[in-house]
Design a protein around this nucleic acid. Structure first.
Length: 534
DNA sequence: TCATCTGGCACTTTTGAACCGA
DNA sequence: ATCGGTTCAAAAGTGCCAGATG
């Protein structure tokens, strides 16, 4: 059981001094909330300064631009990166303490959306959530000094709609709204990741919420992507001058020619934002209680500012976008709504397949209960939501002498459909902006069968235990090398070259937030590095 | 018929081996 | 032999678009 947690949202802060190492002023990080497992807020122990950690979203201005338009993220079968990419600056860590940084993406609500009349609207109930997966930063675990030295980038995180994705990408449903979250897990000697007193810190930037799509719906988003994503420079129009889509946008979005476009990957540089908008974490989550520390002096009773509503009709009415569809060689402007998606289609594949049948949902690379890597390997690491894994306390087992430092597993966080407040959207009703906050009865210590949706079980190297589940390989090199051989496709690159560093993946059946409990289990790298600086 | 998804395309950036000279 | 800089080709990441799917 966790004895402490910290959570926060990025809202409500104020712009303050430029943190060292950042080239732009960034808003004050979210206020930290510290909650104990019993549901009461309290300060962390003096030696666990996790509550002093501050997280700054990189390129926040860019994120806000997208957010204001209603961020969309493409999901593909092969996996697609997020853009803007999720990068943060972390401060306040103990330089010598080791931390693990990871992200997950949780449903923002229980609705499916449609893009109708140039805005996102609720179109029915959400489909069952995909297997929950975590993306562990490849540098994890690393010292606070390491994390604070530079931006922490999760840009290699990929999103997919492939329910059977074997690559460990985060699986999402199209036309659903999601909220990325950042977790910072303390993993030092006295607070071993996976131990009963694991301290972690969950951070949510509401402006990073997005709706997953298989093709862009809102052309303003398309243009923002083209304008800001260097890989999309090819779509920035010709010398004659215009973005392809801009022709169809009328005056709404400025025509951008190659001549006038300049790389604007960091458009927020030099900009100072005003008060951060949005609301704080709402109470209701026994594990992650709201606990605002109004550094700016704003009393808790003051209504939080809201982000511009990206998905509601309350946007500037003058902003008019059009629905397009492709027919033949031309696009046709459509002002009408697309056919409402009113019925919730059953999952393409029985949920059982993913959540309850580890054997059936067990991608080769996800079948290990722990992952290890050769020292120095720093590849992407994604972890799947978990199977019938009894990770509590980590089932000791296995030939420890031969195995890499084994893992203990702890349920350490809960994932719920990201809560929204305000009126419950109804079908056909424009989506109301949701603030990021936690709600729900999730408890990190609920016995597995009754566990709340998407608990995160953490497997940590400090103990000589393993996450229960598919039998791990006992080969010292760890799954990494083995899987590379078994699944070369996972490690593409030039022949004869060492594959790019990759961590291996763990698969854990997961479940829908609305369905029987599922857990995220995370197997952390079993590098031979010690977890302390000693 | 329609909304949504898929795969190929052209384009760009990124990556790292190969090469060269100091 | 080593190091640092440059070059270049392949890989990877983009959105667009036509066709497929349910």
């Amino acid at each position: 059981m966790l004895q402490e947690k910290a959570s926060a949202v990025a809202e409500g802060g104020v712009v303050t001094a430029l943190p060292a190492g950042l080239s732009e002023p960034v808003p004050e990080p979210s206020h930290l909330g510290v909650a104990s497992a019993d549901g009461t807020s309290h300060s962390t122990e003096p030696d666990q300064n996790i509550e002093s950690i501050k997280v700054f979203l990189h390129e926040r201005e860019l994120w806000k631009k997208f957010h204001e338009a209603g961020t969309e993220m493409i999901i593909t079968k092969a996996g697609r990166r997020m853009f803007p990419s999720y990068k943060v600056k972390v401060t306040g860590m103990n330089p010598k303490t080791k931390y693990i940084l990871l992200t997950d993406i949780v449903p923002a609500d229980e609705h499916r959306y449609k893009f109708c009349d140039n805005k996102w609207m609720v179109a029915g109930k959400a489909e069952p959530a995909m297997p929950g997966r975590l993306y562990v930063h490849p540098d994890s675990p690393a010292t606070g000094a390491h994390w604070m030295r530079q931006l922490v980038s999760f840009q290699k995180l990929k999103l997919t709609n492939n329910h059977l994705d074997p690559f460990g990408h985060i699986i999402l449903n199209s036309m659903h709204k999601y909220q990325p979250r950042l977790h910072i897990v303390k993993a030092d000697e006295n607070n071993a990741f996976g131990s009963k007193n694991t301290a972690y810190y969950t951070h949510v930037f509401p402006e990073t919420a997005f709706i997953s799509v298989t093709s862009y719906q809102n052309h303003k988003i398309t243009q923002l992507k083209i304008e800001n994503n260097p890989f999309a420079k090819g779509f920035r129009g010709s010398d004659e001058g215009e973005l392809r889509v801009s022709r169809l946008q009328g005056k709404e979005y400025p025509v951008i020619s190659k001549n006038i476009i300049r790389p604007r990957l960091a458009p927020s540089h030099g900009q100072v934002t005003g008060k951060l908008e949005g609301a704080g974490l709402m109470s209701g989550h026994p594990q992650v209680l709201p606990h605002y520390q109004y550094e700016s002096g704003v009393p808790p009773s003051e209504p939080p500012e809201h982000h511009p509503n990206p998905f509601s009709p309350s946007r500037d009415p003058n902003l008019l976008y059009h629905c397009f569809k492709h027919r033949g060689n031309s696009r046709h402007l459509e002002l009408g709504c697309k056919r409402p998606y009113l019925d919730t289609a059953p999952p393409a594949v029985p949920e059982e397949h993913y959540f309850r049948s580890p054997s059936s949902y067990e991608p080769p690379l996800l079948s290990h209960t722990y992952c290890g890597e050769p020292l120095g390997s720093r590849g992407a690491c994604m972890y799947g939501g978990g199977a019938a894994v009894d990770s509590e306390e980590g089932g000791a087992g296995g030939s420890d002498e031969l195995s890499p430092p084994a893992l203990s597993c702890n349920v350490w966080a809960s994932v719920q459909p990201y809560p929204r407040y305000g009126t419950q959207p109804t079908e056909g009703v424009p989506y109301q902006h949701f603030p990021a906050h936690f709600t729900g009865p999730a408890s990190s210590v609920v016995p597995r069968p009754q566990a709340t949706p998407s608990e995160l079980a953490v497997c940590s190297p400090p103990t000589v235990q393993r996450c229960p589940g598919p039998a791990p390989s006992s080969s010292p090199p760890g799954p990494g090398s083995m899987d590379r051989a078994a699944h070369p496709a996972m490690y593409p690159r030039r022949l004869g070259l060492p594959p790019r560093a990759h961590r291996d993946y763990l698969a854990f059946p997961s479940q829908s937030p609305r369905d029987p409990p599922y857990q995220y289990h995370m197997g952390l790298s079993t590098t031979r590095a010690h977890w302390t600086d000693s």
